[in-house]
Amino acid sequence: MGCMTGTSSGRRVTSADVAREAGVSRATVSYVLNDTPHQKIADATRRRVWEAAARLGYSPSAAARTLRTGRSDIVLGLLPNWPIEHVLGRLIQQLTSAFAEHELTFLVHSSAPPARPLREIWKAVTPAAVLALEEFPESEADAMRAVGIQVVMALHGSVRGEPRPPLVSEEPIGAVQARHLVGKHRRLGYASPDLTRLGALARSRLDGVREVCAELGLPEPDARTVPLEQSGAAEAVKTWLAADPPVTGICAFNDDVAMAVLAALRSLGLRAPQDLAVIGVDDIPGAALAQPPLTSVVRDTDAIARGLARRIVDTLDGKDAPADPIRDPLRVHVRESA
């Protein structure tokens, strides 16, 4: 006979049904299923309750858990309208694991159209915390707190409009790229993505390149938008090489943009790094297969995920969160392109 998933009337199974099935009180069911400490319940009774719950297909509702613990176990992750590719996908998986270690569930919502309005999402879920990957309106954050959402954090920028360091800084990425190139290259270019929704990230990374150039007395980096198609990327490459003095080293927003630059060089009969050195970000699997193999900055996304989870959990527990960004160890995977 198959396992029952509800009562004979088709309504939702409750703890009272489990109590009747097991021949115990509702309090005993609550103590057993919630593993309440300091309750002396015989092992045989515990087994009877668990077996009854399994037969009936009973599981405590999220609302019941919230009433019992005083808070939801959900952290709502708000994704901007960004492409969910290799690195962002990996970060989501690692955030899921990092929150699970703290007995929290990471639930992700993407704002890519035609998504439901943000307010409908957090009202339906009532999470303990919200982690946004980009800034969102102060009025939205205040509305969340008003309904009891305890922690609202934004990865890049403050949700309250107050100046503060981001939870994860992007500027060091551009700085690492620039420092890798400046030993051999006296004029750098920056290859920006052809997606306006990635503009905030690109500007921060470009700022890191600018800081290194200013520190070393080099010209301002020549920033160009590089589309992910050969002819448009070739126009950017030709402009860099025609500059006076010419640009000879390119810091690209990410590996996809860097590989567009490499493809443009090949189409023009040119080579990297001899004609133009190129360094990317993220070290995606295809970086090693590029022609030539792509030098790339590697981020420790697991350290980022664990750091974010720790900030959320500490804040939920009433501890003061550090003001400094989470440390993101960076290294350069050196290949032939730079």
Rank of each mutant, 00 (worst) to 15 (best):
D194H: 13
D194T: 01
D194W: 07
D194I: 09
R197P: 03
L198Y: 11
L198T: 03
R203N: 15
S204Q: 14
G208C: 09
G208I: 03
V212W: 03
C213M: 11
C213L: 09
A214S: 15
A214F: 14
E215S: 14
L216H: 13
L216T: 06
G217V: 05
L218W: 07
P219N: 09
P219K: 08
P221D: 10
D222P: 04
R224S: 02
V226C: 00
V226T: 06
P227N: 12
E229F: 14
E229G: 15
E229N: 10
Q230D: 13
S231I: 14
A233T: 08
A234R: 03
E235F: 13
E235Y: 12
E235R: 14
A236Y: 03
V237W: 00
V237S: 01
K238C: 12
K238V: 15
K238N: 13
T239R: 12
T239D: 15
W240G: 03
W240Q: 08
W240I: 03
A242C: 06
P245L: 05
T248I: 02
G249R: 04
G249C: 12
I250N: 04
I250G: 00
I250Q: 00
I250P: 01
C251T: 05
A252W: 08
F253E: 01
D255H: 08
D256M: 11
D256G: 07
V257S: 14
A258K: 06
A258R: 05
A258S: 05
M259L: 12
A260S: 14
L262I: 02
A263I: 04
A263K: 14
A263G: 12
A263E: 10
A264G: 00
R266A: 13
R266E: 07
S267W: 01
S267C: 11
S267K: 04
L268R: 01
L268T: 05
G269W: 11
G269D: 06
L270S: 05
L270F: 07
A272N: 04
P273E: 02
P273H: 07
Q274R: 15
D275A: 06
A277M: 04
G280F: 08
G280D: 01
V281S: 11
V281I: 08
D282L: 00
D282W: 00
I284T: 10
G286L: 14
A287N: 05
A287I: 09
A288R: 15
L289R: 11
L289H: 14
A290G: 09
Q291L: 15
P292Y: 03
P292F: 11
P292T: 09
P292V: 03
P292C: 09
P293E: 10
L294C: 09
L294T: 02
T295I: 01
T295A: 02
V297T: 08
V297C: 03
V297G: 02
V298G: 12
R299I: 13
R299T: 12
A303R: 08
A303C: 09
I304K: 09
I304G: 10
A305V: 00
G307I: 07
G307C: 06
G307P: 10
R310C: 05
R311E: 00
I312E: 00
V313E: 03
V313S: 02
T315Y: 04
T315K: 05
L316P: 06
L316G: 07
L316A: 07
K319P: 02
D320L: 15
D320R: 15
